[in-house]
Design a protein around this nucleic acid. Structure first.
Lengths: 240, 240
DNA sequence: ATACCATACTTGTTTAAACAAGTCAAGCGT
DNA sequence: ACGCTTGACTTGTTTAAACAAGTATGGTAT
């Protein structure tokens, strides 16, 4: 799949780090060594390393080498990272999953919706509410709005399977950037009605805007997670 | 303070985008145009653009240009992003702040602590609990552990001010990578004792490991936030 | 008018080279 | 034994160039 050289090298290094072939806390081979190993220029090696550093797999040490700081994560809960569909996440986390569509409508964005979602006012939108089941427990309530001119032809059937799959495979549109905000909100009546909240009175809420390959925002999503099955991972780098 | 060319360009572009001098939804000048503007090579321009894309400010469109997708954030709540100290965040969010140190101890990591934090077993650690006040409300409970060999000489006085400031300015150590996990946890008795939780029975919890310029993990932190003053932002890019 | 194609843009990938700057250890002189 | 310099490493920054590939526009032939 990867056509670019740096991606091949990136994936190879990533695999070797995850399999501990390159052990944690050790150093990677030097850039010049890897130039010999992979038969490419130093810049290409550096690009692969930069991506690994971005994900918290390694950290470059000026004058010393590239330290591996990868540590395997515990798979206890539902882990989120990157842009992933519910289906992809479920598969990656080895969970049985199921989706119930509880609302499917077409709406026009009024001023308030436009303000909250980032869509232009009077946009034609699909409005979808879905309940996500993991291991037969109702854990996530998703509210999605899709920009109809960009994502035409949505149906409840597609919503029950995977909308992202439809967008990427059927519409041939690429999904690139996603801006997300994470908050913790008090449970609403709708949450309590559809989710098995036990006695939690809060939810982990991820709100996000997604942009396609043309730089157009086509989706606003709010995912409301039951607290005990929610985990979000992140790697940050400090700016000077 | 930026000494590298690409950082100067990055900051200049960032400023122009934030000030809407380059308006949102528009395109940046082409790379070759900017080569002329900044008097540098195309690679240097591209590096600056890459950083902006990383932060969700722009998105490159193959063959078309670089679209600006920046949108100003609402400053309603306490926003987290990047690696920042409480003090820095408070200042950036224009809040009055105050820290109370409720515990300051030196401990040795047993097996359980080592497992949970990622420190080696039998590490000598500082163990610090602090309550963070914003606008005179007790909102955050911080539990910090610092690796004593790397961060020597900590005192309760430093903990009340800013430990990061001490590390960077007094010890001259650089802080680079931070790996974080965000979860939502049930409030404990300690939370209820020290924070004004109202009737929330959950907290937003950010757990993180921080690495210094030598690639050594020197800090484990758990920040427990009252839900209504918590917001975490993130930008993700989808991998092919 | 329409369909097609050439062309002049745009960004994406890769190479090669040079120099800066940080690290480390061997070896030298005191 | 100690401190210093030197040189051989390491990563960091920047340039220049070439080619690939996607996009848009205008002109041409139909």
């Amino acid at each position: 799949m990867p056509k670019a050289k740096f991606e091949v090298i990136y994936k190879d290094l990533k695999r070797k780090i995850e399999s501990l072939e390159y052990p944690s806390l050790g150093l990677l081979p030097s850039e010049n060594t890897m130039v010999g190993i992979y038969g490419c220029s130093r810049n290409t090696i550096r690009r692969a390393i930069a991506e690994l550093a971005e994900e918290g797999y390694v950290q470059s040490l000026h004058g010393k080498g590239v330290r591996i700081i990868y540590q395997p994560i515990d798979q206890a809960s539902f882990t989120i990272g990157g842009i992933e569909s519910f289906k992809e996440s479920a598969v990656r986390n080895h969970k049985k999953y199921y989706t119930e569509v509880i609302q499917f409508a077409e709406i026009t964005a009024d001023e308030r919706v436009a303000q909250r979602t980032g869509f232009p006012a009077n946009s034609e939108l699909y409005y979808i509410q879905r309940v996500r089941y993991l291991e037969n427990k109702a854990l996530i309530l998703d509210v999605n709005m899709f920009f109809k001119p960009i994502v035409p032809g949505l149906t409840p059937e597609i919503a029950r399977d995977s909308i992202y799959e439809y967008i990427e495979n059927k519409l041939g549109m690429s999904i690139i950037t996603s801006k997300r905000k994470m908050t913790v909100e008090r449970a609403t009546e709708i949450d309590e009605k559809h989710l098995e909240l036990n006695d939690y009175n809060c939810l982990a809420v991820v709100s996000g805007q997604t942009y396609n390959g043309d730089g157009i925002m086509f989706e606003y999503t709010q995912s409301r997670h039951r607290p005990d099955y929610f985990c979000f991972q992140d790697t940050a780098t400090r700016k000077r």
